[in-house]
Design a protein around this nucleic acid. Structure first.
Length: 230
DNA sequence: ACCATTTGACCGTG
DNA sequence: CACGGTCAAATGGT
């Protein structure tokens, strides 16, 4: 079964890569093709770009300078530990936006934050629920294994991924997210988790957009594959 | 008791 | 004034 999953996944990745290449746009050139992070030129980004920064104020709108957006059905499997610090209903959005910061934000003064928002896709289709995840700031912390998570934009550099799996666990406590993304199939959840974790180990990991998109897509693909059109 | 999450209030920006 | 982002007390789980 595991072999079947891997086989299926590699096929899907190949197709995705081909599709990605054909869909490549100029603005996507910014994206590291290894990670295949899709930058979204959303209204938020446009708005935030215009926002002025005042370092002395805490409650300010963020700039989009160092933010990376991506869409994923599994917003929590990004190899990082996050602590939720807020949730807000966003205008014209059906689902609330959750705000996370790095677990080590205090003890290690890590500035990395992320927001997770479920997209307004109509449920009931064969498409999985998708989430828009926006990463802000960069990890300046070391994870709980003492592995340097990187302090700069090492999108092209490879990170020495720890041989321990304990750093993989991410907080995933949003009941809404659980309900929608993880759904009702525990087996799928476990399988995807297992594969995702195992995939993290040999792969390079980006500390800023820490998830390896291959793994994310794998995760999603596995879900697709294991859950035929229901 | 400790820690993470929830939730309403607060603040800055546009 | 509306909106988005953060704070911090309350709450719940372990």
């Amino acid at each position: 079964m595991f072999q079947d999953i891997l086989d299926c996944s590699s096929k899907a990745i190949t197709e995705l890569q081909l599709q990605h290449q054909s869909d490549a746009r100029p603005e996507d050139a910014l994206v590291d093709d290894k990670k295949r992070v899709r930058r979204i030129s959303s209204d938020d980004c446009i708005k935030e770009e215009g926002a002025t920064a005042n370092p002395h104020h805490q409650h300010k709108r963020r700039r989009s300078d160092d933010s990376v957006s991506l869409e994923t059905p599994v917003p929590h499997y990004d190899g990082r530990q996050w602590r939720k610090y807020g949730q807000k209903h966003i205008n014209k959005a059906k689902h609330p936006r959750s705000y996370y910061r790095c677990t080590y934000s205090k003890e290690q003064d890590c500035k990395a934050t992320k927001t997770v928002q479920q997209q307004d896709e109509s449920t009931g289709t064969d498409n999985p629920v998708m989430y828009t995840v926006v990463y802000h700031g960069q990890h300046t912390c070391k994870d709980n294994n003492g592995v340097d998570s990187g302090t700069d934009e090492s999108e092209t550099s490879t990170l020495s991924c720890s041989d321990s799996r304990s750093s993989i666990s991410t907080t995933c406590t949003d009941p809404c997210d659980h309900q929608t993304s993880l759904g009702d199939n525990k087996l799928i959840e476990k399988s995807a988790d297992l594969v995702t974790k195992s995939m993290y180990e040999p792969l390079d990991m980006n500390p800023f957009a820490p998830l390896d998109l291959d793994s994310w897509e794998l995760d999603a693909l596995i879900r697709f594959h294991l859950k035929p059109d229901n």
